[in-house]
Amino acid sequence: MRERGGVADKGRNVRQGYALLAPTLVVVGLTLAAPLGLLLITSLKSQSGIGFEAGWTLAQYSEVLGRGSYRILFARSVVVAALVTALTVALAYPMAYFVAFHARRKFLWLILLTIPFWTSYLLRVFAWKIILGYGGVINSGLLGLGLIAEPLGSLLYNPFAVVVTLAHAWAAFAILPIYVSLEKIDRSLLEAGSDLGDSKLRRFLRITLPLSMPGVIGAAILIFVPTTGDFVTPELVGGPAGAMIANIIETQFTQVGNWPLGAALALVSMTMVAVLAGLFVAAARAAARAVR
């Protein structure tokens, strides 16, 4: 038998551990840290033709934070993402609860719930354009049934269309984490609650809901971050009234060609998302503790 656990062995082990970790950290460093550093440098420049002017400036940041139209875009992105997150989680929770506690064939339900997400994200979003459009499924269907005399023009190209589409597109990211956290709950805790005289509602509020909070928080973060920076949905169903921050960032990099301004917009929105997500996690944890 080999000897194990000696001091020398431990030292070697730690080195081995870092060696295993190194490739991933190098890749992440090269593809994340370096590009973000460059993004920061670019945001401190100003565009001049196809190059940058010499010297450093905070002009982009004063433009980003000072101009009303950008502030509207930031605010709209955050409000839309928050609405989408709340709506998606609220709609998914009872569904996940049903599968975790009441469904007889859980696996079948999980498969049924995920199949709609097995096709292209672009096409799922595009399908809503077909459904909500002027000559779309809802309008042509209602016209055909004689329920309306002319198409409802207000369904598409507004923030409402963006919220509905995103709440659909990200549903799986709410159902699955919430289901997992509900499934983990020790059923004997619920029995204990009943035995000690809790009503069903009280039992849900004091045991099930707080214990499922990790799933809810996880789902909220998984949905809030990408939807704040979503480009496809506002572009396809949002119209000018539903444009979000990612659309203006993309424009700076492709059509306008003002990379420093685009970089500053990207960094400000990234910081904003991180701060809001952090605040949300802290608040949700505090709330869960207060309930218990």
């Binding site: 593809t31 920076g229 979503d230 990612a246 685009g262 990207a266 998302v273």
Partner: peptide, 24 residues
């Protein structure tokens, strides 16, 4: 720290990842 760093892209909108890599 290592776990946090590897998970960081989850907390960054894709558009930011895309344009910063384009810059690099």
């Amino acid at each position: 720290v290592a776990l946090g760093m590897i998970s960081l892209p989850l907390f960054i909108p894709d558009i930011v990842l895309g344009i910063s890599l384009l810059l690099l």
